[in-house]
């Protein structure tokens, strides 16, 4: 599959994963269509910063933030699990807050700062939570792990969780089907002690 290099800003038009239709504009009120800021008749332009790298893209407006990351920017660390906001595998940080990237249009984040699992390490050193997940063996298959770690980064920033029970409650948006919860909580507690 051909993927578009992230530094280009040519948009999604060549992406074979995107369904294309001929954009005739039929049935669309012209004044409404004009406000959509299309770059071609069906695209919207989006500028955002992902892991400190600026991207300007032309996207089908229905592209989810998750698909933007995975299909357009080749950042496949963020996982697609349920694709309906129930599993948390797609968790990323938008302006420091954790959200499900599967439940939003990328176009809603024009101007936003996005952090994914690929953006957590600094100068080759793992983020304390990444290291803690390794130290505590806080995963089995690893599929939910990027979402778990991004969610935990959000949790630490929120500062509401103090006890193990509070960590469990506030991590309830992330499901681990292998059942590594005990070690996930231990890893977060370790990172919490360092922050």
């Amino acid at each position: 599959m051909t993927k578009k290099p992230s530094e280009k800003s040519s948009g999604a038009s060549k992406d074979p994963t995107r369904r294309r239709k001929v954009a005739s504009g039929a049935g669309v009120p012209s004044a409404v269509a004009a406000k959509a800021r299309p770059t071609t008749s069906d695209m919207v332009s989006v500028s955002l910063v992902v892991n400190n790298v600026h991207h300007s893209l032309a996207l089908d407006p229905r592209t989810t933030l998750l698909d933007l990351l995975r299909e357009h920017l080749d950042l496949t660390g963020t996982k697609k699990g349920c694709d309906q906001g129930q599993c948390g595998a797609c968790t990323v940080l938008v302006d420091g807050r954790r959200i499900n990237s599967c439940l939003t249009f990328a176009a809603m984040y024009d101007g936003a700062q996005i952090t994914t699992i690929e953006g957590l390490a600094r100068n080759g050193a793992l983020h304390p939570l990444q290291q803690a997940f390794i130290d505590h063996d806080a995963f089995q298959c690893g599929y939910c792990t990027p979402g778990q770690i991004c969610s935990a980064v959000g949790l630490l920033a929120e500062g509401r969780a103090k006890t193990a029970d509070e960590i469990r409650e506030l991590m309830s948006g992330n499901i681990c089907r292998c059942g590594a919860y005990t070690n996930i909580v231990a890893a977060i507690q370790q990172a919490m002690g360092q922050s």
Binding site: G88, T91, R98, I99, S151, G173, N174
Partner: peptide, 9 residues
């Protein structure tokens, strides 16, 4: 309502 990720949106 949902998890924190849902509550944030």
């Amino acid at each position: 309502i949902g998890g924190l990720q849902i509550q944030n949106r």
